[in-house]
Design a protein around this nucleic acid. Sequence first.
DNA 1: TCGAAGACTTGGTTAAAAAAAT
DNA 2: ATTTTTTTAACCAAGTCTTCGA
Length: 932
Amino acid sequence: MAVVNPTNLAIDDDDDDTPISFKRTSNSTKTARPTPSKHEGSSGGNGAPVRIPKPVSPNPQKNGATGASRPLHMKPPSSSPNHRPSGSGQPNSLAQHSSKANSIDMSKLKRPLVKDERSDDSDDEVPIGLRRKVEEKKLKGVDTRVQKTDDSDDDDKPLGLKINSSRMSSNRVNKPVLQRTVPKVEQPDEDSDDDKPLASRLPSNAGPKSGGDVSEDSEDEKPLAARFSKVAGSGNPKIASSSKGLTSDTNGQQSLGKRPLDNSNQTSSALKKAKPSNVSASAIVRREIKTDDNTPLAQRLKMGESSKGKSSAKSVFKKSPASVKKDIKKMKGKGKLKKNMKNSQFSKIMKVPPGSGGGKKWTTLEHNGVIFPPPYKPHGVKMLYNGKPIDLTPEQEEVATMFAVMKDTDYAAKPTFIDNFFTDWRKVLGKNHIIKNFELCDFTPIYEWHLREKERKKQMTTEEKKTLREDKLKQEEKYMWAVVDGVKEKVGNFRVEPPGLFRGRGEHPKMGKLKRRILPSDITINIGKGAPVPECPIPGESWKEVKHDNTVTWLAFWNDPINPKDFKYVFLAASSSLKGQSDKEKYEKSRKLKGHIQRIRENYTKDFKNKDVTRRQIAVATYLIDKLALRAGNEKDDDEADTVGCCTLKVDNVTCMPPNQIQFDFLGKDSIRYFNTVEVEELVYKAIEGFRAGKKPGQDLFDKIDTSRLNAHLKDLMPGLTAKVFRTYNASITLDGILHEETEDGTVLEKIAVYQRANKEVLSFTIGENQLLVSSFILTLGCPFSYTQVAIICNHQRSVSKSHESQMTRMNEKIDELKSQMEELKADLNKAKKGKPLGYDSEGKPKRNLAPEAIQKKVATLEGKIEKMEMDKRIKEDLKTVALGTSKINYLDPRITVAWCKRHEVPIEKIFNKSLLAKFVWAMDVDPEFRF
DNA sequence: TCGAAGACTTGGTTAAAAAAAT
DNA sequence: ATTTTTTTAACCAAGTCTTCGA
């Protein structure tokens, strides 16, 4: 199964030792921080965690498909071996690994390098219904532009893609994408919105499908309306009310109304009001505002997904795309065309163009400030010191309690954490306090009090809990909204962080330090000129400062008590148009990279042998970022966890393994270990050997460059290009390619499975690596250890749900049961056909004799049930460790997903949850034929 | 040119809510 | 009606990248 590709594995195990913690690492790293000057620390990392080869679940097939390692190796351009054709890759590899398995060796963990097996991937993996069609690719090829032949493509394509075969199959992805995309896409730029106000953009026409279609899909789900409402938040009664409140209260008055409505400019003014029209998803967002209006949610939402009639729907969409866009542009506001037909259209809302005025992010801004955590309530439980109860002042008790409560976390046992805590606590205790030795402290009484409290809360009746919740909501309601340019928008984090002990990740030198309480006098507020200053919620105190800076989007900030030179900002929620706009810009930028990627790759490939060391380092670093999705790697301070990224890799983070494999082993972002062995192009291999020559372990591999130099170079190649754009680009283009190649007709469920698999494939490329690691390991090798043990190795305990195993067992039992029922039914069918009596059932009662046709029908029903069950099982196994929900958030252009949903008539709600729907309102009106 | 600020995105962890099982 | 499991959302640490200022 596993797809892993053994090939490379070989590597070894040195790691074995390592196992224990990921952290290992740093050894070297830390040690030497060679670079004295700036770099002291190094930073960043990316983490690509170790990936194991893909885990493949049960089905071997997948292997290929998924491509385990994405990056692993990249093959040289030409080589694209077998992409698809071959196929069978070798599942075996796993086997090999497994064998080792007894101990947990990292070796196993390592990702195998995948060889080109991709081929195999082929269909096998694919879930039943969906196999990808290999052939398609060819079809796509139509456009020729960029591409070369398929095979070749790989080469050129993004490394990542090419790379390992498996995971991302490069081929598919790339080429297709490129070609098509280009042509069609276009819009992007335009849309880009740069110019237009978000609002305006949003709306566009959503409605493609809309119209009548709606009906059908629904069945699965609820009526659109229903859904919508949820989305909108309106679902929440409270919210709704609140919104009203808003209006009424504060601002409501003025601003609210205005903006939206009027401002919307010309065209759109309609929008807001537009209820009638249907606002589309986009509308949703704003909806909050509108909520009041009652616009029928349904209408707004309509968006497309629901279209029923496939054919019709499709046709509609298809056409529309181009035209639509144009229309949109022309008439921002209107867009009724479709609407008319469908209803769905959105109106456009125009706001002041955000981007417009140089750096100006808003024109008017009102909000109510932030809410503070309640003052500490002493519990009076006495801890013991040297066996005796100790009296503590409330302040002292508060800090002691913070520590006591963390008893069952890993932090409680870490020396750094304890030292920092104790040092800070002693400051609160005062110089002459009797408590002087941590060893003599016994926090157990407080810990037990905490457990009792927790239990008490759990015991509260639902009613009580509800009351409590409502009270809290009521209290917070006014802080939840801001009015930006007349539009009511949700605020993201309006609660000031409560005091506590700092929970830095990895070996953070400051973990355990007391994060002191933040007061109004620590907070700087940002509001529009002339807007009412938020009332300070704590009587007698006042804000540190009130600013009126419309070039930034934060509503308030305070200095981080742990690191005073850092700030903690209060921003609008992800669903706000300000955030939506920049999100869209991010995707447009990475989409733009598509048009430059080939040249950029050629450019760095050429520089692998540049005589100038700096140029060579830039080339290799760019290659790693592109192929392996490494993060840029900024410098870090000494008082942060010692992690690295591409530019800060240390000599000892990289091992050259002849003839052309490079093994990476370092702690990336969040101290997640990236452990991977990759086959690289010969010139890259040679270059890396060269960079390492003559250096000591802790020194920088790329000593001539840093992120600013690297990004400066990237900007020369494409305006606005920076290292992180590669991640977005590779992830999105891959998803786009897979979805276009693999989706076949089938039930909605099957299609969703395709989507999820594609999503997972892409994700593993960039995210959730640690988790993937664990899952891969287990799946692939048939890990003999418990999940907990694996978790320890990986340093991340919650990876796989503890109950996963039992759940799988249960599912298997159910399937078995269904199957035995099937056997019985079939036997009955035979008897019935021969006119024999059916005999007795398990309880000894005689069975009713049915006509063969009736039994046949039952068989069919049962068959469907079994199939669904098995599919559920496969999906579950496959996705058990991957948090698809979170990952969809940052790297995948939502338009890819929305367009896919429209094309395949899958309700978008099946893929995006409520918050994602809110966050991606701006993407809802995308053309069904959109290509990233 | 460079380091420090500053602003914002990314992403793991954890708490809360919702759904499913009992 | 509970309890358990899963999903979603909140929280907040840790990155990236831009801008500022000397």
